[in-house]
Amino acid sequence: MINQVYRLVSARQFEITYKDSSIHSDYIVVRPTHLSICAADQRYYTGTRGEEAMATKLPMALIHEGIGDIVYDPAGEYKPGTRVVMIPNTPVEQDEIIAENYLRSSKFRSSGFDGFMQDYIFLERDRLIALPEHINVHVAAFTELITIAMHSLARFEAKAHSRRQTFGVWGDGNLGYITALLLKKKYKESKVVVAGKTPFKLNNFSFADEVYNINQLPADLKFDHAFECVGSIGSQYAINQIIDHIIPEGTISILGVSEYPVEINTRMILEKGITLIGSSRSGYHDFKNTVDFLACNQEVVDYLETLIGSVHEVKSIQDIIDAFEKDLTTSWGKTVMEWNI
């Protein structure tokens, strides 16, 4: 069958390419229905990813957050129309120590490997998870972002000490919101403190125990562990603030992505015996755990609906451009494309 792929060829310019794909294979064929725009997609779209990356990775179909309906399953395990979340990480090997999302050989959609902006996606059987029928599809569209927070919590569980009375979360954006929400739900008896810089965004963290502006932190603010969800150059200031306030021997989980090296106070990391935990992307088990968690916690899904910033029906390339441009001006939440092209 001929599959249409909508690739970014240069900043703000998409083109349709055609790819001959066979359904006579072991791949499950999925028709994307709802796609969510990520900040990483925007860096490619606007051309701010860097000249070298743009030159080596384009042309490329964007988007690594999305859901779709199964069109064809050669094994007959899934019925046509079954709604699934698609897993963008694509490992080509296994390692008994290194997780699939940290293997340097793994491919990741919309990062040098075509993403979900296609008519049909051909997936290995372990690259999708069936979704519960009742879940909000616009929330489900950014399941991948939720799995990143879920993955960081799994790494925290494996590496941090057992005292978990208070958590600090730095960042008032989408990832900070999700991480703080999951912490509050999973550690019900613990206090969750959120620090950010934008008042109207912080107002959305109604579930948190305490919310502070980063310029007005109490001198006596303390917590056992922290999660940095700021990214970019701001992560430098966030990590150093966390180091100042964290109780000795706590862990700092770093989730924010920065294009450039940042300076952090290593002297106090040593003096306090702080453990830094890096977390990036996610794998099959993170998706499975996230879907199971959301299926059993409708109130979490209700809170996540707050992150639906805008929804755009896409029927043409111009609609794709309009959605990306609108996303650039959206100050809160995720932009979701209803993929009807």
Rank of each mutant, 00 (worst) to 15 (best):
I63L: 14
V193G: 00
D244G: 04
T166L: 01
Y237M: 10
Y260E: 15
V300Q: 12
K188G: 07
E15W: 06
Y260C: 03
D302W: 11
I98C: 03
N240F: 01
I129Q: 03
N136L: 09
I63C: 10
V9G: 04
V193A: 02
R7L: 09
I97V: 11
T330P: 02
Y120K: 04
S258V: 12
I254Q: 02
G196S: 10
N289S: 14
C229S: 10
L270G: 06
L8A: 09
V29C: 04
A140D: 04
L62M: 06
V192K: 00
C229A: 13
V5H: 01
D286F: 05
Q216A: 11
L153S: 02
L276S: 00
C229V: 05
I67E: 01
R125P: 00
A323M: 09
E15Q: 13
L217G: 03
D20Q: 14
K272R: 06
A226W: 01
K188Q: 15
G81W: 12
K222C: 12
G173P: 02
I214G: 04
I274D: 00
N174H: 03
G231V: 09
P132A: 12
T198L: 02
V336M: 03
H34K: 10
E100A: 07
P32I: 14
A55I: 12
T329N: 10
Q94G: 06
A208C: 14
G309I: 14
S162F: 14
L128I: 12
K288N: 04
M150W: 08
S152G: 05
D172L: 08
K186V: 03
H34I: 06
C296Q: 14
N240C: 04
F122T: 02
A149V: 02
V71L: 14
E259F: 05
G68M: 05
D322V: 11
K288D: 10
A53C: 08
F223G: 01
V314K: 02
H161V: 10
Q318P: 06
N101M: 12
K184L: 13
V301R: 02
Q298T: 13
I242K: 01
M60P: 00
Q241A: 07
V169I: 07
E325L: 13
E51K: 14
N203E: 13
Q165K: 12
I98F: 05
E271W: 12
H225Y: 06
R163L: 15
W332D: 01
E305G: 06
F142I: 09
A208S: 08
M86N: 11
I247Q: 05
I2K: 11
M86E: 09
S22F: 11
K57C: 07
L294F: 04
D69R: 08
K19F: 06
V5F: 08
S111E: 14
E100F: 02
I242R: 00
W332T: 07
M268V: 03
T90F: 08
A226L: 09
V5W: 05
T147D: 02
S206P: 06
V71N: 04
N3L: 08
Y27T: 03
T251E: 07
D209K: 07
R12L: 10
T251W: 03
V139S: 01
E15R: 09
D73G: 13
V139C: 05
Q94F: 07
T48G: 03
A75D: 12
A141E: 09
D244I: 12
P74K: 10
Q42Y: 11
V85L: 06
K185W: 15
I135G: 00
W339N: 05
K19L: 08
K326Y: 09
E93A: 14
Y120D: 00
L123G: 05
W170V: 09
D220E: 13
